[in-house]
Simulated scan of single mutants.
Amino acid sequence: MKRKGIILIWIGCFLFVCSVYPMFLIMREKATIYHVYKNYAIEQLINVHSRMDATTVLNSPFMLTNNKIQVITEDTGIVAPKTINQKIKHIFKMKILINDEEKFPESEVTLTPEREEDSRFLSWLNVVKIREQDSGIEKTAIIQRLSSDWIPGKKNPSHTESQQWRIIYFTGYNQMEEEVFGYPDRGKHPLGVRLIQESQMSSTLIGFKSDVLTYLPSYYYPAIYPQLTFWVGVMLLIWGTVRFVRGMRDTSA
């Protein structure tokens, strides 16, 4: 009984050690999702699935929490590197004027040079309203993607890890706050990550602190590994410890 207990403990330790870190990532991600969805309600001010709506809002000055917002783009004439989208795109300079002033640095975006019916900005910029559930305080935000499109074969740095965003929060006239962060430090900006997810400002699926929940589920992951292997490991550790202790008592007796 003592020997069987040791074997069970070794197997349990192996399964536990292999599963504990991904289980920690999954539980931490679920806890973050719970809190950020509980604390904030998000309302899309631009229907990302409606081309007409996006054109109407972003191609002309619009009001946002008593602030006049205008998005201005300037074609540099430089052809952008080829991406997963086969359309020919140019590098543009994008400025966001707030009350006719440029309060934040301009950014580079890649857009098709032809003027189209639908807005060309939606993969780079979006607008939402945020409501804090406890206090009822409302504010609006502009979510802007600062990183370039996905260039096939460019892996240094990888496309996902090189992503960057800017979020401008508005609470009143000329009352604003800028939040800039990248993929590696997104864990410090849970609300920002939710805004990025809901506004589709990321060209890849991203999680709040890790991407463990963005992987496609299968028969193996995550039901068998790490969830089942984790709990089987815990049970084997308990069972093996009980058998080992009983074996020690039988030996001493």
Rank of each mutant, 00 (worst) to 15 (best):
K4E: 10
I9W: 06
I9M: 15
W10L: 14
G12S: 12
G12T: 11
L15K: 03
F16P: 11
V20N: 02
Y21K: 03
P22D: 10
F24E: 08
L25P: 00
K30D: 08
A31V: 13
T32E: 14
I33T: 09
V36H: 02
Y37L: 07
K38H: 15
N39M: 05
N39Y: 09
Y40V: 04
A41C: 01
Q44F: 04
I46P: 00
H49Q: 14
M52E: 15
A54N: 08
T55I: 01
P61H: 13
M63N: 06
M63V: 12
L64C: 02
T65N: 11
K68M: 09
I69K: 00
G77F: 14
I78N: 10
I78K: 09
A80D: 09
P81Q: 00
N85T: 07
N85M: 06
K87C: 12
K87F: 15
K89R: 13
I91M: 06
I91Q: 13
F92H: 10
M94G: 01
D100T: 05
D100N: 15
E102A: 14
K103C: 14
E106W: 07
E108Q: 12
V109G: 04
T110I: 02
L111S: 05
T112L: 00
E117C: 02
S119L: 11
F121I: 10
V127M: 03
V128Q: 08
V128A: 06
R131H: 05
Q133I: 13
G136L: 05
I137E: 14
I137H: 04
E138K: 01
E138L: 03
T140L: 01
A141M: 06
A141F: 05
S148C: 02
D149R: 02
W150F: 13
P152W: 01
G153V: 03
N156D: 13
S158C: 04
T160W: 14
E161V: 14
Q164M: 13
Q164G: 04
Q164F: 04
W165Y: 15
G172V: 06
Y173L: 15
G182F: 08
R186K: 10
H189V: 03
P190V: 03
P190G: 04
R194Y: 08
Q200A: 12
S203D: 14
S203M: 14
L205M: 11
I206L: 12
G207E: 11
G207Y: 10
G207V: 01
L216M: 10
P217M: 03
Y221S: 12
Y225V: 05
P226C: 00
P226H: 02
Q227P: 01
L228Q: 07
G233T: 05
M235Q: 08
M235P: 02
L236P: 00
L236C: 11
T241C: 12
F244V: 04
V245C: 06
V245W: 11
M248C: 14
R249Q: 10
D250Q: 05
